[in-house]
Design a protein around this nucleic acid. Structure first.
Lengths: 82, 82, 82, 82
DNA sequence: CTGCCATTTTACCGGC
DNA sequence: GCCGGTAAAATGGCAG
């Protein structure tokens, strides 16, 4: 019985389960991250500040990526790197 | 008739209408922005690149703000600026 | 120096700044809207439900506008109100 | 130089980097998930509906877990399976 | 329990 | 006219 109501049920089930598995791993990582924050906090660090630092470093990274992306656009616009 | 089903109908209506008014203005601005892009495009500029430039400049601004916010947190953490 | 790398730099800068200015105003309105929701919430209204109401009213408005637009088309086609 | 301004700099750096590493892995998983959705979509499935299904299945799982947790509490309270 | 922040979802806009 | 990607809105989760 590969088809139910015109839907390839097995295929769908496979996709769903792959996603659920990945979501599970993602949730586990989120839990790990929370643990690290908790550990840092119990060591006396300020979580709010840590988050801010991490956000800032991420902004820097994003900025660099955006710069590179922009450069690519310019190259493209000028017909370089063909 | 200030109350309907336990809800302060007039008060609610007022909030709703304030929001709808603001949303309208916001939509108008979005339309203006689209127009500017269209004009720029018809002048020969590449819209995609323009968007990227604007995004980049915004990232810079956000970065600066995050820096300042971080500085504030540090000050706070050190008990400065009482 | 009106041209850099074949790009009318001043013209571009002008477009960019117009857009950024408009974006700023748009962001300010978004902030206003958030404030109104916050106020409504602190008055005891449920924000989520308010959003639903607003969405529905917008749909209604869009419908009416579409209807009116259609009516205009018909009138035009029939040579009325020319 | 283990201390800067009263902050155990190395320790902090270590926490930050652990978190960033974990965030990176989390982002990678998010990308994987997006890919699976994309693949499913290109196979003809409706992504929005798939998300709904997954949300529902998660609710079911959470319910079951809550039930089981409650059961454990009861068992414990009754001195069973100690 | 409240407010804030991240993530997710929806809507829009440009390109093909 | 549709698709893909990008930005905005909205919801949910976490810290304080």
């Amino acid at each position: 019985m590969a088809e139910v109501g015109g839907i390839a049920a097995e295929r769908l089930r496979s996709f769903i389960e792959r996603i659920e598995r990945l979501e599970e791993e993602k949730a586990a990582l989120a839990a790990d991250i929370r643990e690290v924050y908790a550990e840092a906090k119990s060591t006396g660090f300020d979580v709010k500040t840590m988050r801010q630092v991490i956000r800032l470093r991420k902004l820097d990274r994003d900025d660099r990526e955006a710069q590179e992306h922009l450069l690519d656009l310019y190259k493209q616009a000028l017909g370089l790197e063909g």
